[in-house]
């Protein structure tokens, strides 16, 4: 599990209304939701990003509503993974359940700026900042059960596999 892309930074307590505003919850179409991803935090977000880019955020990313539309919007927008100092718990569950890779790093936020390229290596638990002389940063290990969810392709596929 390796992800390489440009960084887009957000601060602490990015709530799910900022990730996908409630006015768009009249639909659960992933492409529609993705078109409005992060709109209330940065109206130009979808114009700026390219496929594979990475959201880097502060504490408590995804707080607030339980709307799964939030990780769906991020994933469908083409964001490869989210690295935050910490995640709100429902968002954390939802991300693993739908197969959006997320990682916790205490140090990355201060070490990068918008547009910088990084490589996140989920297998060996490290992040490399490209074109920088800074050594690799450590990411928090993902609990084995969550790794299983990711490798099975999300919760529903995990359950189907267990039943089979």
């Amino acid at each position: 599990m390796k992800f390489r892309g440009k960084v887009w930074k957000f601060g602490d307590n990015v709530d799910t209304d900022a990730i996908i505003a409630a006015r768009y919850l009249v639909s659960s179409d992933p492409a529609f939701l993705a078109a409005h991803c992060m709109e209330d935090a940065d109206p130009d977000f979808m114009k700026k990003i390219s496929a594979g880019d990475i959201i880097v955020a502060g504490e408590n990313f995804g707080c607030g509503s339980s709307r799964e539309h939030a990780p769906i919007a991020i994933k469908t927008a083409g964001i490869s993974c989210v690295v935050a100092k910490s995640f709100a718990r429902i968002f954390y569950r939802n991300a693993f359940n739908i197969g959006l890779p997320i990682f916790e790093s205490r140090d990355l936020w201060d070490a990068v700026s918008d547009g910088q390229e990084i490589e996140v290596d989920g297998d060996n638990g490290s992040i490399r900042i490209l074109n920088s002389n800074r050594g690799p940063l450590r990411i928090e290990p993902i609990p084995p059960f969550m790794q299983q969810l990711v490798s099975d392709g999300g919760l529903m596929k995990h359950i189907a596999k267990k039943k089979a």
């Binding site: 509503s65 339980s66 429902i90 569950r93 939802n94 359940n97 739908i98 999300g154 919760l155 529903m156």
Partner: peptide
Amino acid sequence: SHTCTYGALGAFATGVGSTDFAA
């Protein structure tokens, strides 16, 4: 997310996402 309300009754209640609900 406000499913936690029912803790007032002495229940364990917590909010989850749609996929958890599907499961």
